[in-house]
Computed example of a mutant assay.
Amino acid sequence: MTHKLSDPTAPPAPAIDFDQFLSVDIRIGTILAVEPFPEARKPSWKLRIDFGPGIGVRKSSAQITDLYEAEALVGRQVAAVVNFPPRQIGPFMSEVLTVGFADEKGAVVLFSPDRPVPNGARLF
């Protein structure tokens, strides 16, 4: 039986060592702008996220329209993987992977700190 990534009953992924964990660079950024993405196969927003002076502003496509209105996202801090290669999604080049968890209905809940942290802060 295969499990979806969002399946809360799935067993843990195979063990990795700490260096492998550190190779995934997850940073905090503040959403500067949100635009509709009508060309996406699944309803999505185009995000511009400020990761601070070390990384700068990057673009992301996020399938978060079920739970988040565009105007409520601006100014919100979110976590994203910043060291994946850019990915072409239709006519849009996504530069980071914004991360979240699936709720009981499968809608994506954004992963963010419970208190403000500096843009560019790294998850460890």
Results as ranks from 00 to 15, higher is better:
M1P: 12
H3T: 02
H3N: 07
K4A: 08
K4T: 06
L5D: 03
D7F: 00
P8K: 06
P8H: 05
T9G: 04
T9M: 09
A13T: 01
P14H: 03
P14E: 07
I16H: 06
F18S: 01
F18Y: 06
F18N: 05
D19P: 00
Q20F: 03
Q20W: 02
V24F: 03
D25P: 00
I26W: 00
R27H: 01
R27K: 06
I28V: 15
T30C: 08
L32T: 13
A33I: 00
A33Q: 14
V34N: 04
V34H: 01
V34D: 02
E35M: 11
P36D: 15
F37S: 03
F37R: 01
P38F: 01
P38C: 09
R41C: 02
S44E: 08
S44N: 09
R48P: 07
G52M: 05
G52A: 10
G54S: 14
G56I: 10
G56E: 03
V57Q: 11
K59T: 13
S60H: 15
S61P: 02
S61E: 03
S61C: 08
S61R: 02
Q63N: 11
Q63V: 12
Q63M: 13
Q63T: 14
T65D: 02
T65F: 00
T65G: 04
T65K: 10
D66K: 14
D66Q: 13
L67Q: 04
L67M: 09
Y68M: 06
E69W: 04
E71N: 12
A72T: 12
L73C: 04
V74E: 09
G75D: 08
G75M: 07
R76Q: 15
R76M: 15
Q77D: 03
V78M: 05
V78P: 00
A79W: 00
A80P: 07
A80L: 15
V81Y: 09
V81C: 11
V82K: 01
V82C: 15
F84Y: 14
F84G: 04
P85T: 13
P86I: 10
R87L: 12
Q88W: 05
I89A: 08
I89Q: 03
G90I: 12
G90T: 02
P91G: 06
M93Y: 07
V96G: 02
L97R: 10
L97M: 14
T98A: 15
V99K: 11
V99D: 01
V99C: 14
G100V: 05
F101Q: 09
F101Y: 12
D103A: 08
D103T: 04
E104D: 14
G106I: 10
G106Q: 08
A107D: 13
V108R: 10
V109L: 11
L110A: 10
S112H: 12
S112C: 07
P113L: 07
R115T: 14
R115D: 12
P116S: 13
P116F: 11
P116W: 10
V117R: 07
P118W: 06
N119K: 07
G120H: 11
L123N: 06
